[in-house]
């Protein structure tokens, strides 16, 4: 099955060392998710595509106990197979706080300030039967186990 990003310009893919993509304006402001243009002092400016750091620290986290309303949710699970997941903000040094799903589903195993790293993980299936991939953050060194 072909693996495709859940949306274009979200992260570098395919890649052996993928990174999240942000936009950067001439005044150095980072915009995630990337978009083409942004107002800078009254003028619409094309943003430069830049890669964000792959490592950071967990700024906060929480849990999602029930399956989110679908649509818009498009996970491969259904009401029976849904597994509660966690989300958090990861502070990427000198860049941004990024909201993301976390690969560790047990909030007891997460703590604010712990070191996290970017993972690109399988998520669902698109209309053409490709496997969609999303970004997530994992505790550094955690086994690769999907978006949880």
């Amino acid at each position: 099955m072909t693996q495709v990003p859940i949306a274009p310009d979200l992260f570098t893919w395919p890649s052996d060392d993928p990174a999240l993509i942000a936009g950067r304006s001439s005044d150095g402001v980072l915009v995630f998710p990337y978009r083409k243009q942004k107002l800078v002092e009254g003028t619409r400016e094309e943003l430069e595509k830049v890669e964000l750091p792959r490592h950071g620290t967990l700024w906060s986290f929480t849990t999602q106990r029930f399956r989110p309303p679908a649509p818009p949710y498009a996970g491969a699970d259904d009401a029976e197979s849904f597994e509660p997941f966690t989300v958090g903000y990861v502070e990427l040094p000198d860049a941004l706080l990024i909201e993301a799903r976390l690969t560790e589903p047990d909030h007891e195993k997460l703590s604010i300030g712990q070191k996290m790293e970017l993972r690109i993980v399988p998520f669902g299936t698109d209309a053409d039967g490709n496997e969609t991939m999303i970004y997530a953050f994992a505790p550094v060194g955690a086994a690769d186990r999907g978006a949880n």
């Binding site: 949306a7 906060s60 986290f61 929480t62 999602q64 818009p72 949710y73 989300v87 998520f123």
Partner: peptide
């Protein structure tokens, strides 16, 4: 739909388009 909040479709598809996450994340921090 995420578009009504100015957010991309994938944000909703991935299960992130839930205001309740904000309350948990802000309270935890």
């Amino acid at each position: 739909h995420p578009s009504v909040a100015g957010l991309p479709d994938w944000y909703g598809e991935a299960g992130l388009f839930l205001t309740t996450h904000f309350f948990g994340l802000k309270a935890n921090r």
